[in-house]
Computed example of a mutant assay.
Amino acid sequence: MEHEQAVATRRFSIGENTFNARSIQSGLYIVSTPIGNLGDITVRALETLAACDFVACEDTRVTGVLMQRFGLKTPLMTYHEHNAAKQRPKILEALEAGKAIALVSDAGTPLISDPGYRLVNDVVEAGHSVFPIPGASALLTGLVGAGLPSDTVLFAGFLSQKAGARQKRLEEAKDIPATLIFYESPHRLSATLEDMARILGPERPGVVARELTKKFEEFQRAPLQDLVERYSGDRPKGEIVILIGPPAEKEPDAADADRLLLEALQTMPVSAAAKTVSKATGLERKTLYARAMELKDGASNEDAGDDG
């Protein structure tokens, strides 16, 4: 009862208007915050931040700007990769006592290339509730503005600072049929783009998205080699999202078709095998049917020869 009365008096402001936050149940609230433009905060996020007993954040100075802008008075505590082992037990104790706690990152959605995974895992294992409060994300903001295919994506976060490890990761992702998304810092952008152009292909479409939602928001869309030249020796300001279009689809050749037909013929008749491979490759069904008959007859003749 005391907890609910305390929460009911907490407030937040939007412009000149002040609102009372409704009481919320105990649990960990994963609250997304703006990635640049503070106007992107959601009303639900503000109400949650106001209603919680305290807010766990990476940097109290950064989160303090947001809190001040919207008249939020909820106490702050730091939670980042360097003090997580010390702070995590405190958060679990507070949840055990019936408190409501918000987790935020410096910008965007927590846990997306930010600390928090272990905390959420421990909270769940301890039997407490976790509530995601969705909102801004550089990952999604960059994707919807890039003009690249968005039906299948691979988010790989930050690549390694070490050239060898970075290049190995790019080799692993080279043939994945998806739009690739990476975060990168300004001082590594040039070297990273050079590795991408060399390993993924100079003509592969790429986008460098910078200063998203801010005044100088920028999308540079071009083949990777052109982006290398654009940023060669340059160190732009702001956080960066690099997006790379999926690799060009390889035209199936005769060997591919034969392999697929032989696999299909092991479990289905010729007509069905030709239909299945036609859908998979885009090759003409009649041609595939004729080839399937040849492969089947050839296999039958080999079996007959073996018996002789």
Score class of each variant (00 low, 15 high):
165 A>R: 13
158 F>D: 14
83 N>D: 08
86 K>L: 09
253 D>A: 09
97 A>M: 05
9 T>Q: 15
236 P>D: 08
284 E>I: 13
150 S>H: 10
130 V>T: 11
68 Q>S: 13
120 V>A: 04
293 M>L: 14
81 E>R: 14
230 R>A: 12
162 K>A: 13
108 G>V: 12
43 V>P: 00
1 M>W: 08
71 G>T: 11
230 R>H: 14
26 S>W: 01
185 S>V: 12
189 L>C: 06
126 A>S: 14
3 H>Q: 12
267 T>S: 09
249 E>N: 05
263 E>L: 12
195 D>Q: 01
53 D>V: 03
122 D>V: 00
62 V>Y: 00
222 A>Y: 03
221 R>W: 09
168 K>D: 11
292 A>D: 06
85 A>T: 06
222 A>W: 03
206 G>H: 02
18 T>C: 09
268 M>G: 08
258 D>C: 10
276 T>L: 10
208 V>Q: 09
14 I>N: 00
70 F>A: 09
25 Q>F: 13
76 L>I: 07
225 Q>W: 09
114 D>I: 06
102 A>C: 11
252 P>Y: 11
216 F>S: 04
189 L>S: 01
210 R>C: 06
259 R>I: 00
104 V>D: 05
15 G>E: 07
278 S>Q: 09
177 P>M: 12
180 L>R: 04
231 Y>A: 07
45 A>R: 05
180 L>C: 05
62 V>P: 00
47 E>Q: 11
207 V>Q: 06
199 I>F: 13
242 I>W: 00
127 G>W: 05
277 V>Q: 13
9 T>G: 15
125 E>S: 15
37 N>A: 07
195 D>F: 00
115 P>L: 05
192 T>V: 08
248 A>R: 12
97 A>R: 11
92 L>D: 08
127 G>T: 04
273 A>V: 04
262 L>D: 10
236 P>T: 11
45 A>C: 06
301 N>T: 11
299 A>S: 13
182 F>A: 03
76 L>A: 06
58 E>D: 11
60 T>C: 05
256 D>A: 14
246 P>E: 04
251 E>R: 11
229 E>A: 14
123 V>Y: 06
129 S>C: 05
135 G>C: 07
119 L>D: 08
10 R>L: 01
33 T>F: 03
58 E>A: 07
262 L>T: 14
51 A>N: 03
263 E>Q: 12
298 G>C: 05
235 R>D: 12
77 M>I: 13
67 M>S: 15
289 Y>G: 01
252 P>R: 11
4 E>S: 12
141 T>I: 01
254 A>C: 00
226 D>A: 12
96 E>D: 11
29 Y>R: 06
213 T>E: 04
90 K>L: 15
61 R>N: 06
242 I>K: 00
235 R>S: 14
48 T>I: 09
49 L>I: 03
23 S>C: 05
211 E>T: 07
131 F>D: 00
58 E>I: 06
119 L>C: 05
243 L>Q: 02
156 A>W: 03
81 E>N: 14
93 E>H: 06
118 R>N: 13
248 A>F: 07
178 A>L: 07
261 L>M: 09
30 I>F: 10
285 R>A: 09
117 Y>A: 13
72 L>T: 01
